[in-house]
Simulated assay, not measured.
Amino acid sequence: MTDSKLKLSLFAIRFTLFLFFSVWAIEKFIKPETTVAIWKAFYLADTLPLQASYIIGIIQSIAVLCLLFGVARFWSYGFFLLIHGVGTVLTYERLLDPYTGSNHLFAAAIPVFGALVALFLLRDEDTLFTIGNRK
């Protein structure tokens, strides 16, 4: 694979992950009650206040912009790898039973996790349209 194809491929992964995670970041502001419900169902946080959704949304929005522009790649890519990995593990029951209800939608987490692993491992090669951290 040529260097330019690798860089373009990594940018494609980074950009599509940005789009994917932006949906969740924006949701924190426009439907904060969904964040509270998700945390209650999956993270056992029965008392998460509605205002916490906005704080989580701000953090996630900053992180998603860092992801888009390749800023602090070890930390920004690692952040999404960690939170998505934890979220995926916490939904293991739905992954093990994909044909009940809409559980099959949780299977989308698996290739997203794979893309995050690849992007994290190849972060030093990911320099197309990035800010800082150039090789």
Rank of each mutant, 00 (worst) to 15 (best):
V112H: 07
F113T: 05
V23N: 13
I38A: 08
T34S: 14
F113E: 06
P98A: 02
K40D: 12
A107V: 12
H104P: 00
K5P: 03
L105T: 14
P111L: 09
I55L: 11
T130M: 05
A107K: 04
D126I: 15
G101L: 10
A108K: 04
H104G: 01
R94M: 13
L19W: 05
P111E: 10
I38S: 01
L19I: 11
L116S: 03
I62F: 14
L6G: 01
G85F: 12
L48T: 04
L128N: 04
T100S: 14
I13R: 09
P98H: 08
V71E: 03
H104L: 06
L119E: 06
I83D: 01
K31D: 11
L122E: 02
L116G: 01
L67Y: 04
V64T: 12
I13W: 05
Y43K: 09
R123N: 09
V23T: 10
F29H: 03
L67D: 04
V117E: 05
L82S: 11
L105E: 15
L48R: 01
A109R: 11
R94H: 06
I131D: 00
L105M: 15
A115W: 13
L96G: 12
E27V: 09
P98C: 09
A115E: 00
F20T: 01
V112L: 08
V86A: 08
A118Q: 02
T34Q: 08
E27I: 11
F80A: 06
S76R: 12
F42P: 08
L116P: 07
R94L: 02
F11A: 10
H84W: 07
L81Y: 05
T91C: 15
L122A: 13
T16V: 12
S76I: 05
F42Q: 00
H84I: 01
D124R: 14
K135Q: 15
P32N: 01
T100H: 15
L6D: 08
G70C: 01
S76P: 05
R14W: 07
S61E: 02
D46R: 11
Y43V: 06
L65R: 03
